[in-house]
Amino acid sequence: MTTIATRSPADVAISVAATIDGIFAMIDGWRDLLEEQLAPAPALTTQAIDPLVEAFAVPAVSGETLLTGAGFVAAPGALTDAEWHLAWWLGTTGSTHGVRRLATIDDPTHEQFRDYTALEWWRVPQATGTRHLTGPYVDYVCTDDYTVTITTPVVRDGAMIGVVGADALVDRLERVLLPVLRAGETPATLVNASGRVVTSTDARREPGSMLRDDDLTAAVRALSPVPVRLPGGTSVLACGDTSLALVVGS
């Protein structure tokens, strides 16, 4: 007789958190570095910021890694020599090899200019003052693929001067997280705080889709560390402080 070991939802949530926490901790370290290095600078310039960002972003997206992009995005007007500025590096995706800097259009009068302050990965950290996981969404700017973006504010003299963060392709995250979810006792779905599916053992819940049940969505947004049981047998619990939630059961 063959015995298949299964893990409790709490154990699965802990394992998910351990994977995502590593990315969060790295990004928090980048924030701390920028805040420390830029604090004594008489003025903020692209020449001062870009080498600092390149030094951590390029290694982060080089080789076999979950990350496909990393860098810093400046708050409009925060730099003395550029009204709008992105210092963002992209790693290997598909048939592309090596690391390259993301080409951007920083002229607001250009027809292809995009105001990044309207995007979720910028808006939420600016409003909350804390890190945020956006997605999955199709990243038409960098990868043309399903992506999650993690960003956190960088502060100088009490004001946010930009966000630092990273992108991860959903299919790369799935390679790591799906085996963890499949080891659980029941079918499991990993969602962000808005109820958007990151990955799932249920084929009906595709990455990027939204949970439609109001009670389920409310439980996800509550992000309780203790399983919240809903009618029908579904349970929801937070994956540490990652802002992700584990939905288990039908």
Rank of each mutant, 00 (worst) to 15 (best):
residue 95 S to H: 11
residue 94 G to C: 02
residue 114 R to W: 09
residue 72 F to G: 00
residue 47 Q to I: 01
residue 98 G to V: 06
residue 99 V to A: 07
residue 102 L to P: 04
residue 47 Q to K: 10
residue 94 G to K: 04
residue 57 A to T: 07
residue 89 W to T: 00
residue 88 W to V: 00
residue 40 P to M: 04
residue 60 A to G: 03
residue 95 S to T: 15
residue 95 S to N: 14
residue 80 T to M: 08
residue 113 F to K: 11
residue 69 G to F: 07
residue 109 T to K: 10
residue 83 E to L: 13
residue 101 R to H: 06
residue 107 D to S: 08
residue 85 H to E: 05
residue 96 T to M: 08
residue 73 V to C: 12
residue 85 H to R: 08
residue 51 P to D: 04
residue 51 P to F: 02
residue 88 W to I: 01
residue 81 D to F: 12
residue 41 A to F: 11
residue 114 R to S: 15
residue 71 G to I: 03
residue 42 P to F: 11
residue 63 G to H: 10
residue 110 H to G: 06
residue 59 P to V: 12
residue 103 A to Q: 12
residue 89 W to A: 04
residue 77 G to W: 06
residue 42 P to H: 10
residue 38 L to S: 01
residue 76 P to V: 02
residue 44 L to G: 09
residue 81 D to M: 13
residue 72 F to T: 00
residue 56 F to Q: 07
residue 40 P to N: 01
residue 84 W to A: 01
residue 84 W to C: 05
residue 73 V to E: 05
residue 99 V to L: 05
residue 89 W to P: 04
residue 110 H to I: 09
residue 62 S to Y: 10
residue 52 L to I: 13
residue 112 Q to T: 12
residue 94 G to P: 08
residue 43 A to N: 03
residue 57 A to Y: 01
residue 100 R to I: 13
residue 70 A to Y: 12
residue 66 L to W: 02
residue 76 P to Q: 03
residue 103 A to R: 15
residue 86 L to N: 09
residue 60 A to C: 02
residue 111 E to W: 15
residue 87 A to F: 08
residue 62 S to H: 12
residue 47 Q to N: 14
residue 43 A to F: 06
residue 51 P to M: 00
residue 78 A to C: 12
residue 57 A to W: 04
residue 113 F to V: 05
residue 113 F to Y: 11
residue 78 A to L: 01
residue 80 T to E: 14
residue 114 R to Y: 13
residue 105 I to A: 03
residue 55 A to Y: 10
residue 73 V to Y: 09
residue 76 P to I: 04
residue 113 F to A: 10
residue 90 L to V: 11
residue 44 L to H: 08
residue 77 G to M: 01
residue 96 T to V: 10
residue 81 D to C: 12
residue 90 L to P: 02
residue 59 P to R: 10
residue 38 L to E: 00
residue 45 T to P: 06
residue 85 H to S: 08
